[in-house]
Simulated scan of single mutants.
Amino acid sequence: MTARTGDQLASTVSGTRVIVVRAPADGAPEIACGGSPMVPASALDGTATSPPSREEAATLIGKRYVNAAGTLELLCTASGAGELSCDGAPMTLKTAKPLPASD
């Protein structure tokens, strides 16, 4: 599956849902959650999933996740269990850019 900016993806193993904010121009990265590939959200509409437990890694609603190269960025729209990964490598939480100090 080719990820494009604006695509909504859903996990098949948890309640995690994301929107693609930035996608690489070349190639089709494999986006997964909890080790299972994510699918278009429209394919899973109406299915119920369990909330994440405290022991499991979880995606957090409203947070942005990026791959190591910075070419793929996802915005989490629904929390769930499982770690987001791109081509088998874990994605990291994007940190806010510090604002310049005004004196």
Rank of each mutant, 00 (worst) to 15 (best):
T2S: 10
T2H: 11
A3E: 06
A3K: 03
A3D: 05
T5I: 13
T5S: 12
G6V: 04
D7K: 04
D7C: 07
Q8N: 10
L9I: 02
A10Y: 00
A10C: 01
S11H: 02
S11P: 03
S14C: 09
S14Q: 07
G15E: 07
V18T: 09
V18P: 04
I19E: 13
V20C: 06
V20E: 02
V21T: 13
V21I: 14
A23T: 08
P24W: 03
A25S: 14
A25L: 15
A25I: 03
A25M: 12
G27S: 10
P29M: 09
A32L: 03
G35E: 03
G35T: 03
G35W: 02
S36F: 08
P37W: 03
P37A: 11
P37K: 06
M38S: 01
V39M: 09
V39C: 09
P40M: 09
P40W: 08
P40R: 10
A41N: 05
S42Q: 11
A43G: 01
A43L: 10
A43H: 06
L44E: 04
L44Q: 06
D45L: 15
G46P: 01
G46K: 00
T47R: 15
A48N: 05
P51M: 05
S53G: 15
S53N: 14
R54P: 04
A57W: 05
A57M: 08
A58P: 01
T59M: 10
L60Y: 05
L60R: 13
I61D: 09
G62A: 11
G62R: 07
G62S: 13
K63Y: 11
K63E: 14
R64G: 02
V66W: 00
V66K: 08
N67E: 09
N67G: 07
N67H: 07
A68P: 08
A69S: 14
G70C: 10
G70F: 08
T71Y: 01
L72A: 07
L72H: 03
E73F: 00
L74Y: 05
L74K: 07
L75A: 13
L75C: 10
L75K: 13
C76N: 06
T77P: 10
A78Q: 12
A78L: 09
A81T: 01
A81E: 05
G82P: 00
E83D: 06
E83W: 04
L84Q: 06
S85E: 11
G88L: 01
G88S: 00
A89Q: 04
P90T: 04
M91I: 02
T92N: 08
L93R: 15
P98V: 14
P98K: 15
L99V: 15
P100V: 12
D103P: 15
